[in-house]
Each structure stands twice: as structure tokens, then as C-alpha cells.
Amino acid sequence: MHALPGISLILLCQLAGETFVQLLEIPIPGPVVGMLLMLAGLVWHGAVPQSLRLVADTLLRYLALLFVPAGVGLMVHFELIGRDWLAISLALLISTALAIAVTLLLLNLLLKRNTSRGGERDGG
């Protein structure tokens, strides 16, 4: 299988995203803009080229490995973590529980409303 066109496409989108962000001086990560450009390109093209899917699948399958180098950098910040460990632990625990609960309740409510409205429309 040819991985080359897929790699080129991804790097091209990232490069375009980075250029866009630098040019307009907006505080959004360049690769995120690159992702949106890639998405727009795929919608326009109407399919995912096989080579692109191969490269994307490989990258996303090993995503976990990619944040190890930055994670090891924690060793530089032991002092900060030692000072803020209680705040960090409670913040993570409370915010994660809240985010899950709020999203569960809100989407559940909206989807129920969506289906009942759709039902009324179908009914008459």
C-alpha cells in the first residue's frame, strides 16, 4: 500500500493550517485548523482516499505513544505539582463528573425532544 500520498496530504493540511493561524494571528493551534481544512476537503471530494485512511488509521492507533515525550516533561514541573496537588486532584474529579453528568442529561433531553417533534411531523 502507498502511504506517501496520505502523508503528503496530512502534512499539506497541517502546513496550510499553520500558515493560516500565523497569517491571521489567531490563538488556535495550527493543526486544528488543518483538521478543519482536511474535513472540508473530504466533504468536497466525497470520499476518503485509501492512502489517507491507511496513514490516519496508523497515526490514531498509536496516538497514545505520541504524548509520552511531552508527558515525561512532567519531571520538570514536580515543584508546581507538589504545591498544587490538592487543587489539581479535586478540580479533575469534580469537573470530570460534572461534564459527564451535564452532557448526559442535556443530550438525553434534546434527543427526546428531537424524536417527539420528528414524530409529530411524520404523523401529520
Partner: peptide
């Protein structure tokens, strides 16, 4: 390895 985070972000467009 760290560099590949950028391309991986772009690849999130596929799913």
C-alpha cells in the same frame, strides 16, 4: 515522536 502529534490532530478529520 512528539512531532507526530500535529499530523495526528489533522488525521482526526477522518473519523
Amino acid at each position: 515522536i512528539h512531532f507526530m502529534l500535529g499530523p495526528a490532530t489533522v488525521a482526526l478529520a477522518i473519523p
